Simulated scan of single mutants.
Amino acid sequence: MNISRRAVLGALAVGATGVVPAWAQDSKGLIVIITPSHDNPFFKAEADGADARARELGYATLVLVHDDDPNKQSELFDTAIAQGAKAIILDNAGADASVAPIQRAKDAGIPSFLIDREITQSGVAVSQIVSNNYQGAQLGAEEFVRLMGEAGDYAELVGKESDTNAGIRSSGYHDIIDQYPDMTMVAQQTANWSQTEAYTVMESILQANPGIKGVISGNDTMAMGAWAALEAAGRTDVVVVGFDGSNDVRDSILAGGIKATVLQPAFAQAQMAVDQADRFLTDGSTGLEEKQLMDCILVTADNADQLETFALAS
Rank of each mutant, 00 (worst) to 15 (best):
T190G: 13
E197G: 00
I216K: 05
V201N: 04
A191S: 02
G218H: 09
R117I: 06
G84D: 03
Q103M: 12
A97L: 09
F113Y: 08
Y199D: 11
D116F: 13
D182Q: 07
G172H: 04
A108G: 06
A151R: 14
S194Y: 06
I177S: 07
L157V: 07
G140V: 13
L139G: 11
M202K: 07
A198V: 09
K106M: 01
G123I: 01
S194F: 09
A95Y: 01
D175M: 10
P181H: 09
I205P: 14
D116V: 12
V186P: 11
Q207C: 00
G136S: 10
Q103Y: 02
A87N: 13
S131G: 15
S171T: 14
G167K: 06
Q128C: 00
L206P: 15
N165Q: 05
P181S: 01
N132S: 15
N209D: 10
E118P: 08
N219A: 11
D96K: 15
D153N: 15
V158T: 14
G136A: 09
A155N: 08
S170L: 14
Y134L: 12
S170Y: 14
G149W: 11
Q195A: 13
A125S: 14
L139N: 10
I115C: 12
L90A: 01
E161K: 15
V126D: 07
D107H: 01
D175W: 02
M202Y: 05
Q121N: 07
I129K: 06
S131K: 00
S122I: 03
A187Y: 11
L139C: 08
Q128Y: 02
L90I: 00
F144W: 14
A166K: 10
L206D: 11
E156S: 11
G214R: 09
N92R: 14
A100V: 11
S127Y: 00
P210Q: 00
A191G: 05
R169M: 05
E118S: 15
G172S: 01
A187S: 14
G211C: 05
P210V: 07
I205K: 01
V215T: 02
L157R: 08
P210L: 09
L139D: 04
L157S: 09
G211F: 04
S112M: 07
S204E: 04
V126E: 10
E203K: 10
A100I: 08
A108Y: 01
Q135S: 01
M183H: 07
I176R: 02
T120M: 10
G140C: 10
A187L: 05
S204D: 15
S127D: 02
E150H: 13
A198M: 04
V99L: 02
V99T: 00
M183F: 10
M148S: 01
S112P: 04
I216N: 03
L90K: 05
T190D: 06
N219V: 11
A125V: 13
P210T: 09
A108N: 07
D91M: 05
V158Y: 11
S127I: 08
P181Q: 09
M183C: 15
Y180I: 01
A108Q: 02
E156V: 14
T164M: 14
G94N: 03
I168V: 13
F113M: 08
G123D: 00
L139T: 08
